[in-house]
């Protein structure tokens, strides 16, 4: 914030209609951030923390939020042991806390297709059910069957086969 203020001050001093002064490029300051779906929404609790998470760069998220993510995971599912990826609570929350989306450059890109895990995100991927299964489903995906799938499996409009792929608006 201090940094932004300094830049803004810098702007003011340059904004004096001196045609020989080179144009100072505008500074854009971060307000929101997202990698994977529902990470901030589900794992960060409290409005203040959510706002802070949105202006934390990914490489610093683990340092700031890993412990809170783990306690939130155990708050959501007190019986959490491991999930279908074989990750214990610390490992799973540690994997989630750096909120970036990995995308494979050499093959299938999917959130989960039964074989590939977290290699991208297509429009049709049922990302919420994947996350619910990993949070509530236990080591073999059968625990908490009432919580591990929201039973909304597809979008409400078919996607397009050509660019821009997203469906036309309602």
């Amino acid at each position: 914030m201090l940094f932004v203020a300094t830049i803004a001050l810098g702007f003011t001093s340059c904004d004096d209609d001196d045609s020989t002064t080179p144009e100072v490029p505008a500074v854009y300051a971060q307000e929101d951030q997202m990698g994977r779906p529902a990470i901030n929404t589900v794992f960060v609790t409290g409005m203040e923390n959510k706002n802070t998470f949105n202006v934390t760069i990914p490489s610093q998220m683990a340092a700031g939020f890993a412990a809170a993510f783990e306690s939130r995971l155990l708050g959501l599912n007190a019986g959490y042991t491991t999930n279908a990826l074989g990750m214990d609570a610390a490992t799973f929350s540690g994997a989630l806390v750096t909120d970036v989306l990995t995308a494979n450059l050499n093959g299938t890109t999917t959130f989960f297709d039964g074989t590939n895990v977290l290699t991208g995100r297509t429009l049709a991927d049922d990302v919420i059910s994947v996350e619910l299964l990993l949070i509530f489903g236990g080591p073999d995906g059968t625990a908490n069957p009432g919580l591990s799938d929201d039973h909304v499996d597809a979008n409400d409009k078919p996607f397009l086969s050509s660019f821009p792929y997203m469906a036309t608006p309602w």
Binding site: Q30, Q33, G35, V100, L105
Partner: peptide, 10 residues
């Protein structure tokens, strides 16, 4: 093999 990507609004 892969990239990490994220979106920001500024």
């Amino acid at each position: 093999e892969s990239i990490n990507t994220w979106v920001e609004t500024k």
